[in-house]
Amino acid sequence: MTAIQSKDLSLYYGDTCIFKDLDISIPKGKITVFIGSNGCGKSTLLRSLARLLKPKSGQIVLDGSDIGSLSTKEVARRMSILPQGPSAPEGLTVLQLVKQGRYPYQNWLQQWSLEDETMVRRALELTHMDEMAERTVDSLSGGQRQRAWIAMTLAQGTPTIMLDEPTTYLDLAHQIEVLDLLYDLNQQEQRTIVMVLHDINLACRYAHNVVAIKDRAIYAQGQANTVITEKLILDVFDLHCQIIKDPLFQTPLVVPFGKGIKPVIETLQPVTVS
């Protein structure tokens, strides 16, 4: 089953074509990660699938419905998105920010409810932001601020969550913490997770479905063990590497050596990732 699907999708910025007649399917209940070099179009594709960027032509289908036919609130009940580098008004507290995630469920008949309160508190606890709930967002460190935004996304309670570089500004420990959280949401609640990540090794570790983008087109898509090859890394990132097996997770581990520094090849024995 697919959560999101594009059909003959064409995206433009002004007169510049970003994608032409693109067909892509995002599997339901899985973690999909977009990878690719800077400027390849992965964030643009994510924004378009979330209806933040209007396509020139083509169709995007969300849970079986043409996304263009759905109201903004209906889309927000089915899909939440955390864009890259979001900003909050000065003086807004973490609690106030996270409460914004419940906006799609509010109307003149239904005001703030116990369910809303429960979802907000749970999102704060999951992201370990409950003790910072009364602090202003602009007083937080970059990593804390990112976790606050992720909490708002979780409070929205949607079956599909889309995130553009969610580990930005986070140190390694908090990167793993955030990705573990998203993995748990996928495993325990079958939420569909779609992310843009720069770290290929973390993408291999957490993704069920890796989408490699090159020159504003899909270069390859599938399981990391099948998709991630030395040729792909060279073609997509213009980077020489050797791929070995992660000793803990048995996923592909990219060992880069670039162009300037040559490794002692004899000490790096190739490992076939099965």
Rank of each mutant, 00 (worst) to 15 (best):
K7M: 07
D8C: 13
L11Y: 04
I18F: 10
I18L: 13
D21P: 04
I24M: 07
K28A: 14
K30E: 09
K30L: 07
T32W: 06
I35A: 09
I35P: 07
S37F: 04
S43L: 03
T44V: 10
L46P: 03
L52P: 10
L53D: 13
L53V: 15
Q59T: 13
Q59S: 15
I60L: 05
D63L: 15
G68P: 01
V75Q: 13
A76K: 12
R78Q: 15
R78H: 13
I81S: 11
I81N: 12
I81R: 11
P83Q: 09
G85A: 13
A88C: 10
L92N: 04
L92K: 10
T93W: 12
L97S: 11
Q106D: 00
L109W: 06
L114W: 02
T118C: 13
R121K: 15
R122M: 14
L124R: 15
L126Y: 08
T127S: 08
M132N: 12
M132S: 13
M132I: 00
S139P: 02
S141P: 03
G143M: 03
Q144G: 08
Q146V: 12
A148V: 13
W149Y: 14
L154R: 07
A155Q: 05
G157T: 03
T160A: 14
I161G: 03
M162T: 01
D164F: 09
T167P: 04
Y169E: 00
Q175H: 02
Y183Q: 12
L185M: 06
R191A: 07
T192L: 10
V196H: 02
L197Y: 01
L197Q: 01
D199P: 01
C204Q: 08
R205P: 00
A207D: 02
V210M: 00
V211A: 02
V211G: 03
D215S: 13
D215Q: 12
A217C: 10
A220H: 01
G222E: 05
T226I: 09
I228W: 09
D235L: 09
D235A: 09
V236D: 08
V236H: 04
L239C: 14
L239K: 02
H240Y: 11
I243K: 01
I243D: 00
I243F: 06
D246E: 07
L248W: 04
Q250W: 01
L253S: 03
K259M: 04
I265W: 07
E266L: 02
E266N: 05
T267P: 00
T267V: 02
L268F: 09
P270H: 06
